[in-house]
């Protein structure tokens, strides 16, 4: 009898894990609450560090899902999971019940709600947008304008919005925002060659392959400027432009600057679905709200509940590269567990 795995969450982690498992002749049911698979990558236009089109990723992952071992349920949410003699029973909003030998949680992350950082003015000032808003704008249009339709002359990218911030309630580093800011700054500069672009950062964490190179390219080729200082607040001018306050910590003096557009690099926070399911299953969370691993080095796909595994950003913010690797490793762990 073939073993069966239920994967909850059809983002890139769930998709990659599903295809990997199917190649090992394991039956997979992939459940996604949204209409489409792909998760947050679907919101993205181009990816760091090489400006690859994000659709290539989802397209490739979708192609691999065409397998007789894989069944997909979209627009479906989980209502309950119970465990009986080593087997799981998963109930969904579509009134279905599925049996499973193992469950993979790949419910991903939520985006930080930038309105919580009121002093930055998101939702209050019309020329304050988030990195996701910017990506949408880059995707939809060839030009980038202010709310009034005017071409912005100066743009500020604000790092660490909802990350590394006790006041937002999230102490962790979201890992991808620094490099995303660099990527988006370059893209904006490509569209608006005359615009000045400033990145306000606390620390630049260019840890991945080709990240540091992209940072250097941003300076060298595109003239992006970097200010080491955390933004304290923004105020709106009469014309809708913004006056922002920061300290230029490297010169040791407070800095005031008028910008036309402000982009908040919003972080990754634990997703509500993960919290909901984790609580239901009795899974341990770490202090940052993401799922905890008892052994962070050797067993980083395992939870404290036998048979329940994790893949991707349910455990911590990750890049796409890391998520794919994590999903494959989870598939392997599951295959070992159920055989």
């Amino acid at each position: 009898m073939t073993k069966k795995v239920v994967i909850i969450g059809g983002g890139i982690a769930g998709m990659e894990a599903a295809s990997t498992l199917s190649r090992m002749n394991i039956d997979v049911l992939l459940i996604e609450k949204k209409q489409q698979l792909g998760g947050h990558v679907g919101e993205w236009d181009h990816l760091f560090p090489n400006f690859r089109n994000a659709r290539e990723i989802t397209r490739s992952l979708l192609y691999d899902l065409q397998d007789k071992h894989i069944k997909i349920c979209t627009s479906t949410e989980i209502t309950g999971i119970s465990k009986k003699s080593g087997k799981f029973e998963v109930r969904t909003t579509q009134q279905q019940t599925f049996k499973a030998d193992s469950i993979l949680l790949s419910t991903g992350f939520d985006l930080f709600d930038a309105r919580k950082k009121e002093e930055y003015g998101y939702g209050i000032y019309e020329n304050v947008i988030t990195s996701v808003d910017l990506e949408q704008k880059l995707k939809e249009s060839n030009v980038l304008t202010m709310a009034s339709g005017v071409i912005p002359k100066r743009i500020a990218m604000i790092h660490c919005v909802g990350s590394r911030d006790e006041k937002s309630g999230y102490f962790h580093c979201s890992k991808v925002c620094c490099i995303t800011a660099v990527k988006q700054a370059i893209e904006v500069k490509q569209k608006l060659p005359h615009a000045e672009i400033f990145c306000f950062y606390m620390d630049l964490r260019m840890y991945g392959k080709k990240f540091e190179e992209l940072y250097r390219e941003a300076q060298e080729k595109w003239g992006i400027q970097f200010v080491r200082g955390r933004l304290s607040e923004a105020a709106e001018n009469m014309d809708g432009s913004l006056q922002i306050k920061s300290e230029d910590t490297l010169s040791g003096r407070p800095l005031k600057m008028n910008v036309d557009l402000m982009v908040l690099m919003i972080g990754m926070v634990p997703s509500e679905s993960t919290t909901f399911l984790g609580k239901m299953l009795g899974i341990h969370f770490s202090e940052d709200g993401f799922i905890n691993h008892d052994d962070i080095h050797l067993e980083n796909n395992l939870t404290n509940v036998p048979g329940i595994f994790t893949a991707g950003t349910v455990t911590s913010p990750m890049t796409i590269t890391d998520t794919i690797a994590d999903a494959r490793s989870a598939a392997l762990k599951i295959a070992t567990y159920i055989s």
Binding site: E118, I124, E236
Partner: peptide, 9 residues
């Protein structure tokens, strides 16, 4: 209130 611009506005 300068840190809660919605009130100011």
């Amino acid at each position: 209130t300068h840190l809660t611009p919605a009130i100011k506005k």
